[in-house]
Design a protein around this nucleic acid. Structure first.
Lengths: 212, 212, 212, 212
DNA sequence: GATGAATGAGGCTTCATTCAT
DNA sequence: TATGAATGAAGCCTCATTCAT
């Protein structure tokens, strides 16, 4: 009569503990002991559920991407079928620090970018999450182009999506490290204005209202 | 007859060795021993010239910023007095992977962003370098606005400069971790197009030609 | 209606798994987890059947000795009643790498000798197996001496038996660690020749034919 | 003005500490901490002088072989040029537990044989030491054969040397693990008698006097 | 009997930093 | 200044053993 396996939950628990710890101390600073403590588990248990610390990181990136994906799903669904509204929702989802902003996830995301530099697995996971964002955004742009909402040559959809994602990612870095450089509430608006340049929208259409 | 102090060179030598090592292994991975080896110095000497490893990082960030600043000086000087040309030069200086591209500096820059998250000193140095970039770009924008080359309200110059710097920074991250997401040669062009959106330039003016 | 106890088989199964694992990784290297895996059992079960890892080793030595004893029985039985033939069979049983040679047992035997150094229980088991071999050989020698096949004073029977067993044991070590030092096929023959020296046989009687 | 390097002594000091500890607790049981303590050094220093624990073992085997070689040199030199005396000296050097017997070296030797099973480097070192012994003994035998002191076909010199070394090695194992099986003082004498069988000496010549 | 999660001690190794020369 | 040895604190990981089911 074996006890039912709880490995899945435990793994998630541990991965979340890593996120929590990593946000404060970075990946290297998040010792396995600290992770275990954050998860309120015995130290040895961590390595029962994970081969190595690096594997925890991979699971954590997975979680991060998944959380983000789900949030994006929700927000895009609320935008209905209008490409412009979807684009706006996409930008706001990332840059409007509102109710649902998550500084921990932000810090982790930047940590992960650093680890991605020197670990192929982490890079794959990180790039995968970015690729997912680009893909979703490109789909929006493509639909908008087809509907003549955006005037964007087919061939440039991917580049445009990458550019907008880059801007968002760059704002993340600034927000986490030099917030004072971003005039409060300007991020989403400025990004929308930049997107307008790419998509051939008249700036006037673009509400340049600050969004906190 | 004391021999003339060579502390200054030694410090630079060590800081550069950190940059080299950090580009491959990250900051934590760059052990003092490894730094000393990269600098071809005895390990003990490192702590003669620096109080702690963290101080080396600070010096290294300084170097990084200084190198970048000098390069930017050169490239902007070549742009003459035309704000549009200067803006273009500013963007190209950061996103055209050409002769002077420096993958090591790129990797270090991202590492530093991670360290900035949890060390006030590093954050100050990192943010200082970013602020410098924003300041210079803002000056260009302001000049362009005054000359009616850019149609940009006074009040939004800083936000616009921050947005362009964010886009550049974001491209850095993508380039270092998920290069395949950036259609080759699209970075500078797309950034210019985005800048057009912010600055009220007609997209047509904006050369959307790919720049390698 | 309790199910019939299978403890005996389980214990043997586990002990054999230790032998298998120990042959490759040594005693310390044979973790309880690895043993369980080799036995295709759940890790927890091991400690249901054994108090401690050391107990498994004791059981394994027992098995080793028992296997060896049975093999020796078979081979000596085939030698009939002739002391010289029995001696030959005894030597061949140990040193003729033939059909029944068992490298795993050899490696284990050497591992066990190491553990015997520092665990009284293991030493007792190991020494017991050796003592058994010496006893059996001494019986053969005694019979041969009585029959005047061997010219060996009573008082020296034990020393002679020990010497031959030592030679065999030494060949084990060489075979396992420096096989290239043993000219192929020379072990049994040379041991027989050495035995001749002890037993006052003319070397001529001793077939010095190599035995593979 | 660097401090003169003391690495060589330190390495020897550490290797000897391993021998001391290993004799009591085995190789695995000799933790790096215990080794450091035995050497009266700070724990971290061990890994300053050695890459890994395994390297210490290699150095220790080296020391063991060297100590033994030097002792053998001394004892053989005392035997003059008489092959029979040399052979006797060779045997006595190994099996006469006299003043110079070294139980620690004995225990270590057996530990090392176990480690040799699963580490190529250790095996090489161990086999090298054995090969050296065989080589030296073979030289003696060859000289004796040429001088007709031993009646031994050329082709069998190596086998005979290996056999005698095997007998010695086997006695080592018995002495360390089951001393009660060796009638006191019988080892050297019995080995000599066995050698006689190999070398065609009449047993009578062979002093079968017990040697403690 | 059996399962697999849980525990916590301890091992090897790395490392920033200090120190004697 | 410079050298390289020395120090001691962690860090990651393994493991024998225990326990709830």
């Amino acid at each position: 009569m074996p006890r039912p396996s709880n490995t899945a939950e435990r793994r998630a628990q541990i991965a979340r503990a890593l996120l929590k710890t990593m946000a404060e101390r970075g990946y290297e600073g998040a010792s396995v002991g600290a992770i275990a403590a954050a998860a309120q588990l015995a130290p040895g248990l961590v390595h029962y559920h994970f081969e190595s610390k690096r594997e925890i990181l991979l699971a954590a990136v997975e979680l991060l991407a998944q959380d983000h994906g789900e949030r994006l799903d929700r927000l895009l669904a609320a935008a209905g079928d209008d490409p412009a509204a979807e684009l706006r929702a996409f930008i706001d989802a990332h840059l409007r620090a509102g109710d649902s902003a998550d500084p921990q996830a932000l810090a982790c995301w930047i940590c992960v970018s650093g680890e991605a530099l020197r670990d192929a697995g982490v890079r794959a996971a990180f790039a995968g999450a970015l690729a997912d964002a680009v893909r979703r955004l490109a789909a929006i742009l493509r639909r908008g182009a087809r509907a003549r909402v955006f005037s964007l040559p087919r061939a440039e959809v991917d580049a445009a999506a990458a550019a907008i994602v880059a801007a968002i990612q760059g704002y993340f870095v600034l927000a986490a490290t030099a917030r004072e450089l971003i005039p409060p509430g300007s991020a989403a608006g400025a990004t929308w204005a930049m997107a307008s340049g790419l998509l051939g929208l008249s700036s006037s259409t673009s509400t340049r209202k600050a969004s906190r």
